[in-house]
Design a protein around this nucleic acid. Structure first.
Length: 751
DNA sequence: GACCTGCTGCGGGATG
């Protein structure tokens, strides 16, 4: 017995440095060797000084790479003196992940001895939280929102809770990059630093990161170049991919969506035939597609009199429905497949999955890579991906833009970029004024009051909002204090305080989240909650039919006041549409699409129908001379192919609008109601005046800039500053226009 | 024209 132990230890420096009780735990588990990332992370974490990012696949042993050395370190220190505060702050984007990690850590920590693990989120046990408050020590597992609540409600205790803190660990760090929630998280980390007067070592964990530099700068702003990076290289799994094309000949019927819905689509039939009997994930780009597809798969099962193995999963379904589906997928002996949105993209453990399907072209390589990472868990299994794209039949009325088979080509480009290992960088230059408002109110609540200078120092100068200049900050405070909003006020000694209205905002329980959430109607059948639909869509009429949770229902009562819709089982129905703002696509993907159009190569991963659709798209591309021409005139509209991502295309649209043209953007093609000659004249005029044009002025000219939670309190100028950084690329747009005016071709632009 | 995430403190009632 002893020899196995010493063999192990003679090979591994990391293992040798662990606390004896951690060594014994690993040994008992029968683990033969540590992973590379665990060997590499251990010396850095045992030293306990540097920031670190560890990137590896979902089952790549990241948790252990952090917690073997961390728990060893805590165990060595307990031997010397008992801690009086939490020593590790672990922050996760998901409650479910906290529950998972709690199970794993409890097992390790209870066998090591006196290391307390405290799970803390909205659904976590109250007694564990009280225990953590009374006797803080060991590891706190918490969500950003619950940490925000600690600052607001127990601001006077934060220093005591974290005084001996050694590590801040951020799980699934990529899921925070560039978002409101990410900015909030950065601010919370920096507020912890301020509360204890030093900066504990930060550790970020990630399954996929396009650009490590950006993740490093996120983890520790202004200190990013000192963050150490460990990347797992055993990502050599074989990839099997197929893109399947389908031709929709029923488009004429589409107005009567009910009729189309009754017919089981050929994509569902292929999914049913290919995936039944195994565990799979089927991703769709929208919740209503999830509903439609899972309903069709259930119908097919009923028709054949077999057990239904296909279950829906998305953010509007109730917790129990979702958990039931996750549980079934985890059960290895019963085959089950889940039709889902990006709910199952992140790190929830759903066990081993045979293959991944994607309905409709994906929008980003990073998302696709994340989804693919779910398939083939065992090392020797290949990752299997099937992408299904439906294009409509071409008639004499079809517009050029639709004849190109853009969605299919987008799918091809994304697969090619995936294979090339390219990934979107998640640049975050936005000011995040909405989240800054939340943090301003939170710090005032935490400290009971604070001067403007000190507030600027804590949040901006030495905080997460370092790109906000002091004059912008002053304007933001003015917006909050003005008569219209009256959220904060200044006392005679110039301390900023919450006004009664501000108090009400901070004391509502929805204050802690940095992101917006809309009002929703609950859907109830026989007293059981199925889930919810957004308020805007809710007033479906009584007696209406609907599809929800993969089944068909009839609405029997709408209780407007309580926001409840009662339903019973029924035979017909259409899925509700869930609305949301449009997405963004990266420049590089659109350029890759151009390359697919001009290439003569046939990708090997296409089925027969996809090959003929691609040929059709390429022929139409050539016939319209789109490698040399930017514009195609059709009736009173010019289709303008920008071959650029969303930021440049948005800027082009605004520039044209401001020059009095009627513009209708559809994806990467801008429809302009004018002649080609007039359009070129407009572009010449824009270029001539380009040096007078400021990005901020362009942003000021855009309508509807209120997107985020506290945007309603901002002035037009602050709103425009954020809008410009997030949605516009004026330099890129001017560069594109220069290309066009200098009579250079799309070919020169893209290659 | 896409997607997801999260939530305090308190009081009342049932249960051991």
């Amino acid at each position: 017995m002893n020899s196995k132990h010493s063999n192990y230890s003679s090979k591994s420096k990391a293992f040798d440095s662990f606390h004896e009780k951690v060594q014994r735990w690993i040994w008992r588990k029968g683990w033969k060797a540590l992973y590379d990332i665990q060997e590499e992370s251990t010396p850095i974490i045992m030293k306990g000084e540097d920031d670190l990012i560890i990137s590896a696949t979902t089952a790549g042993g990241k948790t252990e790479a952090v917690f073997f050395p961390v728990v060893s370190k805590l165990a060595f220190e307990i031997d010397k003196n008992p801690p009086k505060s939490f020593q590790v702050l672990y922050i996760s984007p998901l409650k479910a992940l906290i529950n998972d990690q709690y199970q794993r850590l409890e097992d390790l920590c209870s066998s090591v001895g006196d290391i307390f693990v405290c799970p803390w989120h909205g659904d976590a046990s109250k007694s564990k939280k009280m225990q953590g408050l009374k006797n803080p020590q060991g590891i706190l597992l918490i969500t950003p929102e619950s940490l925000e609540a600690l600052f607001v409600n127990r601001g006077y205790e934060v220093t005591r809770l974290f005084n001996d803190l050694r590590f801040i660990v951020i799980d699934e760090i990529h899921s925070f990059l560039g978002l409101e929630r990410g900015k909030q998280l950065q601010s919370l980390m920096s507020r912890v630093d301020h509360a204890i007067g030093r900066s504990p070592s930060r550790i970020g964990l990630s399954a996929t990161i396009g650009d490590m530099e950006i993740a490093a700068n996120f983890l520790h702003p202004n200190n990013g170049d000192k963050v150490k990076i460990i990347k797992s290289c055993n990502d050599a799994r074989e990839l099997k991919v197929q893109l399947r094309g389908y031709l929709d000949t029923t488009s004429q019927l589409d107005q009567d969506s009910k009729e189309v819905h009754e017919s089981v689509s050929d994509i569902s039939e292929h999914l049913f035939k290919t995936l039944r009997g195994e565990n799979n994930l089927i991703f769709a780009n929208s919740k209503s597609v999830v509903e439609k597809c899972s309903d069709q798969l259930r119908l097919l099962s009923e028709k054949l009199g077999v057990l239904n193995e296909f279950l829906p999963h998305h953010g509007n379904l109730s917790k129990t429905i979702r958990e039931d589906a996750e549980y079934l997928l985890k059960e290895q002996n019963k085959p089950a497949s889940i039709v889902c949105t990006s709910t199952l993209e992140l790190g929830i453990d759903v066990g081993s999955v045979r293959s991944v399907a994607q309905i409709g072209a994906p929008y980003s390589v990073s998302g696709l890579r994340q989804r693919l990472g779910r398939s083939g868990r065992r090392d020797d299994d290949p990752s299997i991906l099937r992408i299904y794209v439906r294009e409509e039949e071409i008639t004499k009325d079809t517009a050029v833009s639709d004849k190109l088979r853009f969605e299919l080509v987008q799918g091809i480009s994304l697969i090619q970029l995936l294979v090339q290992k390219w990934c979107e960088p998640s640049r975050d230059e936005a000011c995040h004024f909405s989240t800054l408002i939340q943090q301003v109110l939170s710090v005032i609540a935490e400290r009971g009051g604070i001067t403007a200078e000190k507030l600027y120092y804590v949040l901006c100068k030495k905080g997460a909002f370092s790109n906000v200049a002091s004059n912008s900050f002053v304007e933001l405070l003015r917006c909050l204090a003005d008569q219209k909003h009256d959220i904060i006020q200044q006392s005679c000694d110039s301390t900023l305080l919450l006004s009664p209205k501000g108090e009400r905002i901070v004391n509502r329980y929805d204050f802690y989240a940095a992101f917006q959430s809309s009002e929703e109607f609950k859907i109830i059948a026989n007293g059981k909650t199925l889930g919810s639909v957004p308020g805007k869509l809710a007033p479906v009429k009584e007696d209406a039919f609907m599809v929800f949770a993969g089944k068909r229902w009839k609405v029997i009562r709408i209780r407007q006041k309580e926001k409840i819709i009662e339903v019973i089982k029924a035979a017909g129905g259409v899925p509700p549409r869930f609305c949301s703002v449009g997405g963004r696509i990266h420049d590089h993907i659109v350029k890759e699409m151009f390359k697919v159009f001009i290439s003569e190569e046939q990708p090997l991963f296409l089925n027969e129908q996809a090959v003929s659709l691609l040929n059709e798209g390429r022929n139409n591309f050539v016939q319209n001379g789109l490698d040399e021409r930017w514009f195609v005139q059709e009736g009173e509209y010019v289709s303008f192919f920008t071959w650029s991502g969303s930021k440049i295309t948005n800027a082009i649209c605004l520039l044209l609008l401001n020059n009095g043209l009627k513009v209708d953007p559809s994806g990467q093609i801008v429809q302009v109601k004018t002649s080609e000659h007039e359009l070129i004249n407009a572009l010449k005029l824009i270029l001539k005046n380009a040096n007078k044009l400021k990005p901020l002025d362009l942003a000021m000219s855009a309508n509807n800039k209120v997107f985020e939670k506290h945007d309603i309190f901002l002035s037009e100028e602050l709103l425009s500053m954020d809008y410009e950084k997030k949605y516009l690329d004026l330099d890129g747009a001017i560069n594109l226009i220069r290309f066009i005016i200098e009579a250079k071709s799309p070919r020169e632009f893209c290659l």
